[in-house]
Write a protein that binds this DNA or RNA. Structure first.
Length: 574
DNA sequence: GCCGTTTTCGGCCCGACTGTTTTCAGTCG
């Protein structure tokens, strides 16, 4: 049973309780659901080892009643309480909850008056204008519901951070340049660098919010204005991406930045902390009674609450608030700490640029070293190199290294970890590489036992330096393969094999939660781009973002070391 | 249903926008 399945049931209970007009319980269930969903602890493992007490201890918002329900669900696969509730409500209730502009109250009304229990019936009723005739709903609401259905059918897939970030920057840049805007920033999940994002949030400060609102809602590319008030507006772009803009005056800019960056869980916890300190916090500032005592900068907002500044990537209510209060937040790694890249391809396998071009691009980024790591022979789809060709390739890389000034060029390969756990080249060839990057690209559907033993065997190989993209996932395309990560982390730490955080927008693998967990086992990391062209090297910021979200510091990341230090970190680099 | 540096009982994050209401409920983030 996965954490997400437990969370889904708790969310479902919350929705049904809300429809019965029950106070407070829905939020209690949602809080518990979120904490299970977002946790790095496996709910099953916690229950197996520490029972109900463990559940209460590890998941905030889980108390006696909810821990018992989780226990029942984990041990029997069913939850009687949930089944009983479901009898009273439409079967596809969760489906209806996903329609924008519909919440528990309206769903209950629609179910009672029109016997609507799924999206299909909802659409039919709307088209026949039955909804507009209901008390408290009307023509406009009916239209909104139809638009919501349209969006639902298209599927509101979340977008990769790597794809959303440039779009967000472009829009934010236009807003920043508008004459009545004093300051602006991207907020929300993009500022926190979540791996996927749902919409783009932008904050601006201005003394003339109305003008900014008009400018924003008339930007080229806007398909539809979803909402427009005096300080807040939402638009839908032609590519169906939603952008929310909030405008405040400069004395509130910091408080608004804090509020609008989230996460929701972080903000709720911060506000609860404020209440305990007899303060009030909202998007305009921190208040003691009626007096505003902070708001201009984020730093002073946190300071008034007795906290150190919290980097946006840490704001997920995963312990950062407690750490901040104790002055124990980590000094997380940043892009300018990165001194090189250990994973890059050229046109000798499946890349599109030459070795020289990749090296020049790395040099331009200010790197001290780059490893050229084309694919090994078994990965035929990526034109993996035969032993003979790889030997020539290594020679070529060494020649280029000699004649290139200002950057060290390392000879490496992304080598297949074969199904039996062996590496794809003979030992006599392996010993010629500066860097050996091991990776799995086949038989993704193997059992957990097979995959785990395959990778553990590879981690025992004396030549492997780095384990690339350790879970093999492609966001939205391929689920991570089944593998016992705990065992992988233990072995990698013991044998000093570095775990890769892959910066490719569709991979970002390890993810933040895995990396956080791996550090606890004593693992060290490399942040690589897996670039297949010179422009691919620029994605390093996405890998760094994961590392930051995983609380990793410069010390945890091997490629923050200078070129001179590499001989101490790798067996075959002199 | 959860939780505690005011509390083991009595609170529970907070404000903007929309529609349909003539004073506010529902939804959203």
């Amino acid at each position: 049973m996965k954490n997400s399945e437990v969370a889904d049931i708790l969310y479902g209970i919350a929705d049904m309780l809300e429809m019965q007009n029950i106070q407070f319980k829905p939020n209690a269930y949602r809080k518990a659901a979120r904490s299970v969903e977002e946790s790095s602890h496996d709910v099953n493992e916690i229950y197996q080892s520490k029972g109900k007490a463990g559940l209460k201890d590890k998941f905030s918002g889980v108390g006696n009643a909810i821990s018992e329900k989780i226990e029942e669900f984990l041990t029997t696969g069913k939850l009687r309480y949930y089944e009983e509730l479901k009898k009273k409500f439409p079967k596809h209730i969760s489906e209806l909850m996903e329609i924008s502009s519909l919440g528990p109250k309206r769903i209950k009304l629609l179910h009672e008056k029109l016997k609507i229990s799924n999206v299909k019936q909802l659409e039919a009723a709307a088209r026949k204008h039955k909804i507009a005739k209901l008390a408290t709903l009307g023509k406009k609401t009916e239209e909104e519901i139809l638009k919501g259905i349209e969006m639902f059918k298209r599927g509101q897939e979340r977008m990769f951070l790597g794809h959303a970030l440039p779009i967000a920057l472009e829009i934010e840049n236009k807003i920043k340049k508008f004459k009545d805007v004093e300051a602006s920033s991207i907020c929300g999940s993009i500022r926190r660098r979540k791996e996927t994002i749902g919409d783009i949030d932008i904050l601006a400060s201005s003394a003339k919010p109305d003008k900014v609102m008009s400018f924003f809602t008339k930007l080229p590319g806007v398909k539809r204005v979803l909402a427009k008030g005096s300080t807040k507006a939402s638009v839908l772009l032609k590519n169906d991406l939603q952008i929310d803009l909030r405008v405040v005056e400069s004395s509130s800019y910091g408080a608004a930045l804090q509020y609008f960056t989230g996460s929701k869980e972080h903000n709720i916890a911060v506000r609860e902390l404020a209440i305990r300190k007899k303060l009030k916090i909202n998007e305009y500032g921190v208040y003691k009674g009626k007096k505003k005592i902070a708001g201009k900068t984020e730093k002073e907002v946190y300071k008034k609450l007795g906290m150190d500044y919290v980097e946006p990537e840490l704001r997920e209510n995963r312990g950062e608030i407690e750490a901040s209060l104790k002055r124990k937040l980590p000094n997380i790694v940043s892009c300018n700490n990165i001194k090189g890249d250990f994973h890059a391809h050229t046109k000798f396998s499946d890349g599109s640029d030459s070795i020289e071009e990749m090296v020049a691009a790395a040099k331009k980024l200010g790197y001290e070293y780059i490893a050229i790591t084309d694919h090994s022979k078994s990965l035929r789809v990526a034109h993996g190199l035969s032993e003979q060709k790889m030997l020539e390739h290594i020679k070529k890389i060494k020649v280029i290294d000699k004649k290139t000034k200002g950057i060290k060029v390392l000879a490496g390969s992304e080598i297949e970890i074969l199904p039996n756990g062996e590496l794809d080249y003979s030992d006599s060839l392996l010993k010629k590489f500066d860097i050996v990057v091991g990776a799995v690209h086949s038989r993704f559907k193997s059992s957990k036992e097979e995959m785990t033993s395959r990778i553990l065997t590879a981690l025992e190989n004396p030549y492997i330096d780095i384990l690339a993209h350790p879970t093999g996932r492609r966001i939205g395309k391929r689920e991570p393969y089944e593998v016992d990560l705990k065992k992988v982390f233990e072995k990698a730490a013991k044998n000093k094999v570095y775990l890769e955080i892959n910066s490719h927008p569709e991979r970002t693998d390890l993810n933040d939660i895995n990396a956080f967990e791996a550090k606890k086992h004593g693992c060290k990391f490399v942040i690589d781009t897996d670039a297949h062209s010179t422009s691919g090297l620029d994605y390093i910021n996405l890998g760094v973002a994961i590392a930051r979200r995983a609380w990793l510091t410069q010390k945890d990341i091997v490629n923050t070391s200078s070129a001179k230090q590499l001989s101490k970190l790798f067996k075959r680099i002199k």
